[in-house]
Design a protein around this nucleic acid. Structure first.
Lengths: 149, 149
DNA sequence: GTCGCTGCAAAGCTTTTGCATTAGA
DNA sequence: TCTAATGCAAAAGCTTTGCAGCGAC
């Protein structure tokens, strides 16, 4: 899609010392298309193969490592035994959390700036210099609150 | 140790429908002795074997599953590819987070009630019924701030 | 031609499972 | 006795690595 090609350009400058190969491009496009966000390596491979059949698991994992290093994506962990990956979104940086539904596994994103206050408290009280955080809330989403056991 | 034996008694009532076998007792004692907290399965096995040599990985994992179900321990994940486990501490419940030092991997616990306000906001705005949360801050601890790259 | 990137397959880790055996109540 | 719990070893994920081949510059 033209729209994603345009978005892709915004990332090209990050690949100065690394090649933006067809495989890497395909993987990046998967993120830009945002298939529900929070993709596992397996899902990323599946979608990337739809674009470029000549791609394997090793390449996906190696690309994910690279993208993480280039701060294009973030690795997140919802405790289901596999890593998941999401595009770093500038405007969300440091201000977005996850609501994980314990019934339907749906993941809802939440914007927040309130945490900033807490971070400042911590930096002061513990002399700990905060670089990033992970915050997930576990509970039941709108649709699942009746079945809550 | 006498002190831990006493602590152990506080957990016996949770084992009504499950047996508090010597193996499970050894594992529970490992948590009560709190070897730096946030133990991995491997560490738990190691310490438990010091008490009772007749214990294997399968038993550790099965006990950890059980303890989690009985709300004796919590499984936490710091993104290092293995699960870690910590004792549920009543007075800390819902109010403790982790500071993970990105240099020395040290983990510091932080008490907090500020997050409660944020939870209330979220429950209202997103109609999401919160049951638990995980919050980790990544950064550099007191001792590692100079080496910060 | 060089050097980075790739696929494939093998290996590595953590965790789970099958099964025969043991041991608690 | 009866069933839950255990150890061992095998298997099952997910992820990483070795290696030979490929491709861009």
């Amino acid at each position: 899609m033209k729209k994603d090609d345009h978005k892709l350009k915004e990332y090209e400058h990050k690949f100065k010392e690394h090649k933006l190969t067809p495989q890497r491009k395909a993987i990046l496009q998967v993120f830009l298309e945002n298939h529900g966000g929070h993709l596992s390596a397996e899902e990323i491979l599946k979608y990337a193969q739809e674009k470029n059949n000549d791609i394997g698991f090793a390449t996906v994992y190696r690309a994910l490592d690279l993208f993480e290093k280039l701060k294009i994506i973030n690795r997140v962990n919802f405790g289901d035994g596999r890593s998941r990956y999401e595009l770093v979104q500038r405007e969300m940086k440091h201000h977005h959390h996850h609501l994980v539904c314990m019934n339907c596994q749906r993941i809802i994103e939440v914007m927040d700036s309130l945490l900033h206050e807490l971070e400042e408290n911590i930096e002061e009280e513990h002399n700990f210099s905060i670089y990033d955080h992970r915050l997930e809330f576990y509970g039941y989403c709108e649709d699942c609150q009746e079945g809550e056991d």
